Computed example of a mutant assay.
Amino acid sequence: MSSKSTEIRGSRKAEILGTLAGWLMKLWNATLRFEVDDRCGITGPDNHLPPVIYAMWHNRIFVIPSIWRKNCGRHRRAVVLTSASKDGAILARAMAVFGIGSVRGSSSRRAVAALIGMKRELKEGVDVCITPDGPRGPRYGFHAGMIKLAESSGAPILPIHARFHSAWRLKTWDRLVIPKPFSRVTVIFDETLAVPPKLDEAAFQQHSDRIREILLAGTDDA
């Protein structure tokens, strides 16, 4: 993925914690048995998909980077939208372990700068990953920035689902899912969804509801 990030520097402590978290994720996920269902052809080296906007729930962040790296990282680049907070700095460093870049911002802080940064990455051929209920929830809520990005950039949205056959769910706001070692995880790269430009208010809401419903259908605990 891209190594780019917007110019928000985290503390040295955040960098260390993030790097350690990334390696923990990488080593932990190496014990898992992944099953991949590619419904859009993105995992093949000969795929011709344009830059896409990955959509996934925040509580799936522990496993998706590993499976993305293994199946897409050799022939695609990507960045993830992380918050401008210290937690966002930790997450950005963790994603860097998987070769994933970051764009810093959220719906409440640096929103315009983040939108511009993501549009720039897409224009340069880099995929963008957004968790529509992040960075603070509510769990499975839906911030509409993803639809704005798709509408203005022309990039299709690609929902990613993860289903866990045996896992712990932490008591965090998102109920972060940690699969038990050596368990099975099914990851689905769903069909891409186009968002037309210049939507009126009703159509914009219709597309938001549609994406949220598709993401909810891919969960096992909604």
Results as ranks from 00 to 15, higher is better:
Q206D: 07
V112R: 15
G88C: 02
V187P: 13
P156I: 07
K198S: 13
V80F: 05
R109G: 01
N71L: 00
G101V: 05
V187G: 08
V112Y: 11
A144E: 13
L32P: 11
D190H: 02
V97W: 00
E7F: 09
A144P: 09
S183G: 02
T6R: 00
E191A: 10
A55R: 03
E201N: 08
M56D: 01
H143G: 13
K13Y: 08
L170T: 10
P45V: 11
K171F: 06
I64L: 09
F62I: 15
A202D: 14
G154H: 01
D174N: 07
Y54K: 06
S107V: 12
M118F: 06
G73F: 07
K70Y: 02
T19A: 10
G18V: 11
I42C: 04
E191H: 06
P156H: 10
C40V: 02
S3W: 14
K198F: 02
H207F: 13
D190C: 01
I42V: 06
F189V: 00
I42M: 03
R184L: 03
D174K: 06
K148M: 08
G137N: 13
L20S: 06
P138K: 06
S107W: 11
D190V: 01
L17W: 03
L176R: 12
W168S: 10
W23M: 11
D46T: 02
R120S: 08
I100C: 07
W168L: 15
R136G: 05
D133F: 05
I64V: 13
L81W: 10
I16E: 08
M56R: 02
S2V: 04
V36Q: 15
T82D: 15
G101D: 05
R210K: 14
S106R: 10
R39Q: 15
D221P: 01
K26F: 13
G105D: 09
R60F: 12
D220E: 11
A194V: 07
L115Q: 12
A92F: 12
I214Q: 08
L176P: 03
Y54A: 08
D200N: 15
P181D: 05
R77N: 11
D190F: 00
I130D: 04
S166W: 14
R184K: 13
R60M: 08
R39I: 06
F62Y: 15
L193Q: 07
V80G: 15
K148E: 08
N47F: 05
A202M: 09
G18T: 08
G218M: 10
S153V: 00
T6I: 04
V126H: 01
V187C: 12
V52F: 02
V97N: 01
I53L: 14
D200M: 05
R212Y: 10
K123P: 02
L81Q: 07
E213F: 03
G125W: 06
I116D: 03
V187R: 12
I130C: 05
S3D: 13
V63Q: 07
M118D: 07
A194N: 13
A167F: 05
G141F: 04
V80T: 12
L170R: 13
G99T: 10
Q205T: 12
D209M: 06
